[in-house]
Design a protein around this nucleic acid. Sequence first.
DNA 1: CACTTGCTTCGACAAACGTCAACATAGACA
DNA 2: TGTCTATGTTGACGTTTGTCGAAGCAAGTG
Lengths: 122, 122
Amino acid sequence: MSNIEALPLLEPEAPESAVPCCPPLTERPLTADEAEKTARMFKALGDPVRLRLFSLVASHEGGEACVCDISDVGVSQPTVSHHLKKLKEAGLLTSERRGTWVYYRVEPSVVAAMGQMLGTLG
Amino acid sequence: MSNIEALPLLEPEAPESAVPCCPPLTERPLTADEAEKTARMFKALGDPVRLRLFSLVASHEGGEACVCDISDVGVSQPTVSHHLKKLKEAGLLTSERRGTWVYYRVEPSVVAAMGQMLGTLG
DNA sequence: CACTTGCTTCGACAAACGTCAACATAGACA
DNA sequence: TGTCTATGTTGACGTTTGTCGAAGCAAGTG
């Protein structure tokens, strides 16, 4: 029997799919589980303050920024910390303490995955 | 000093302004205004039910789906209607009534804009 | 050690959100 | 006209979220 014919057309994944996420939104309806996971990432960017924080880190020189660099987003410092934590929990940022300061940087694979879910729509 | 300068910035603009909003998130920190606009779009996809609805419309044949096609997302019909409205207000979907049914389709420009803000990160 | 600075966690509160049942509206059809 | 079906809107509800001040760690300095 030729078991060759029904090969699942899932080739070795693209290098940046370190994230077990989802196909482009146009490919097929998401399952409840996929939607749950993915929505968490989009929700993380669904707040103006968090979006500014993320953009600030993403555009900062060296790809990272310490919390001390961000004090002008219009909210108190505990609130900044709270939002950074949310972004971390969503997998969009990572943090590292170096001496006195804590540095945040973006997690490219996760962001790329989000982009791919949207990008193929155009 | 003219008192004209302080125009109330609340124009009666269309709720779905399909404008390419902002530069890639890596280019420079977003302004408060840009973040406000953009966050509205991401927030729209930040709910599992909405994400499923959106994916359902986006992946449906012909690029559009009527509400009758979507009855298995696990919430009541009024809730579906509510979420579709949210997606419309965010500019991600448009709707059109044809006879008995209402058809929804994705707004490609807005989705593409979101993808561009993320896509250049990889 | 005490003191200062950078950041996180805690406790509380108002506002926003998701959900549903009930009601309302729009069109098709008899 | 009236009735039926397909969607949207309203009002109410419990839950989640964003925000702050106060307190708690962590690390450097005198």
